[in-house]
């Protein structure tokens, strides 16, 4: 089936959003969303990797032997992740110290492998690049939303800046910065999205 860029874009961000529709990449969603700054760098890493690995795999799709295609995909993804890792380590070492372990785990983020196998290995390079960006943006939007709820509720800050007169009107909810807070938020967001944002396909 041939896709148009518009369809690809809508699917990645909305209709087949990796988080609330495909339920992929949940590990990092739960892990890094207690601080918005960390979330933004994680999203940058994921968009960069999904887009470029999709593009590369699509360019090479005619040459990659079918029997070893998964190995090649992992190798290409791992290379881009290492590049992202080096860049984040060089430019923002403090953030790298926190999200470093998760950056390495982008390699095993199911979104990237899923898009590579399901889309890039069967479609043209530019469309695959677009699909990678769209999936990455779809992932990022959900993460940014969750982080922008968790950080103010949990720390009373947003992007590290303290909310005005926080002590007068807010007592931090420690649970929001702990893993259970992420589960609550993700669960509620998925419920909300599937109930109101996207219509279920009736079979």
């Amino acid at each position: 089936m041939a896709y148009t860029p518009k369809q690809v874009f809508l699917n990645g961000i909305w209709l087949e959003n990796p988080i609330y529709r495909q339920v992929l990449g949940i590990c990092s969603t739960l892990a890094v969303t207690n601080l918005l700054a960390n979330t933004l760098f994680m999203c940058f890493g994921l968009i960069f990797t999904t887009a470029l690995s999709n593009f590369t795999i699509s360019v090479l799709r005619e040459y990659i032997p079918k029997r070893i295609r998964m190995i090649v995909q992992v190798l290409i993804i791992a290379c881009y992740v290492m590049i992202v890792d080096i860049i984040i380590k060089a430019l923002v070492p403090d953030i790298h110290r926190f999200i470093g372990p998760y950056v390495g785990l982008i390699i095993t983020n199911c979104i990237i492998m899923g898009r590579a196998e399901a889309f890039a290995s069967q479609n043209r390079p530019l469309l695959s690049l677009f699909d990678g960006v769209a999936s990455g943006v779809g992932y990022s939007l959900v993460l940014i939303f969750i982080a922008s709820v968790r950080e103010p509720l949990g720390f009373g800050t947003i992007l590290g800046m303290t909310l005005p007169a926080r002590d007068l009107w807010w007592h931090s909810w420690i649970i929001m910065v702990m893993p259970p807070g992420a589960f609550f938020m993700l669960g509620m967001f998925t419920w909300f999205a599937r109930r109101w944002l996207v219509k279920e396909v009736k079979r």
Binding site: I64, P65, K66, R67, I68, I71
Partner: peptide
């Protein structure tokens, strides 16, 4: 593309 030599060379 299925020959071992191609696969090895590609990798």
């Amino acid at each position: 593309k299925t020959s071992p030599a191609y696969i090895l060379g590609f990798m």
